[in-house]
Design a binder for these strands. Structure first.
Length: 257
DNA sequence: ATGTCCCTTCACAAGGGA
């Protein structure tokens, strides 16, 4: 089985690239983030033509997550129990069972800056996610993949000195991820196709991608049974190249059936 | 450390978010 996660930064703007990438990569399951469309506007027709079932959760202008699967898409859940809003609910998590694994696509709040109320919201959201995952983890194999908006270590940012007072790297955010792992989730390492760091995000500005000044903030967290089946995992930086890319690259994971 | 992109609207420019 091959699965992937990708923050597409608008599924409408990215649709031609998404369809090409689905054709060439041929993943069985895909977790999408930042679709930026409501459920009714999700381009399900085009994706269905490629053999995928779709489940979308969106609110239009911001956020939005979705799951694509060609190996079954059962028991879809939008959001999770106890999920906080700001203050209203935001479309940041969707999960379903595909091929015997529960996949959850997550778009963790950005946080903006450590003194912003959105930062406290980010930490509340991650703590609530941890609590909500407990029954899922007891029920079977789980993959929680998406844009976590946290760089787990200093090696995951291109210049740690620049990020000392920024969101994405604070001890509290990193602790929140450690608490997810403490539930029994493993950070599945993805290899970079170029360079030493498996960055997944490069700012559009200032030629950051070409200088490989990126961050590893998209992550695949999997239960041990899934992690043990991994045969390969990579950051598809090819998808970040060229005209009209997302600012994030997909992570593609192969596991033994 | 800011050279972009995407979305929306009291829309054909500007602001907000990342």
């Amino acid at each position: 089985m091959r699965f992937a996660t990708w923050n597409v930064n608008s599924v409408k703007a990215r649709l031609p690239r998404l369809l090409d990438w689905l054709g060439s990569t041929a993943p069985d399951v895909v977790c999408l983030q930042e679709t930026k469309v409501g459920e009714d506007a999700f381009p399900a027709g085009e994706v269905t033509e490629l053999g995928y079932e779709t489940a979308a959760y969106g609110q239009g202008r911001w956020n939005g997550v979705a799951l694509l699967s060609r190996i079954g898409l059962e028991d879809v859940r939008r959001g999770f129990d106890g999920e906080p809003g700001f203050p209203d609910p935001e479309a940041r998590a969707i999960s379903a069972r595909c091929g015997g694994i529960r996949f959850m696509s997550v778009y963790v709040p950005n946080g903006r800056t450590p003194d912003d109320p959105h930062y406290a919201y980010k930490l509340r959201w991650l703590a609530a996610l941890r609590d909500a995952l407990v029954p899922d983890l007891a029920a079977g194999p789980v993959v929680v993949a998406g844009d976590y908006n946290v760089a787990p270590t200093d090696a995951d940012v291109w210049d740690p000195a620049l990020f000392t007072a920024s969101t994405h790297v604070t001890p509290a955010e990193r602790t929140a991820l450690a608490e997810l792992r403490a539930l029994g989730l493993t950070d599945v390492p993805a290899r970079p196709l170029k360079g030493d760091h498996p960055y997944t995000y490069w700012d559009y500005r200032a030629g950051m991608f070409h200088q490989n000044k990126g961050m590893r903030i998209d992550l695949v967290y999997a239960t041990a049974d899934v992690a043990a089946r991994v045969t390969d995992a990579l950051v598809d930086r090819e998808a970040r190249k060229g005209k009209g890319p997302s600012d994030h690259a997909p992570i593609v994971v192969d596991i033994e059936d």
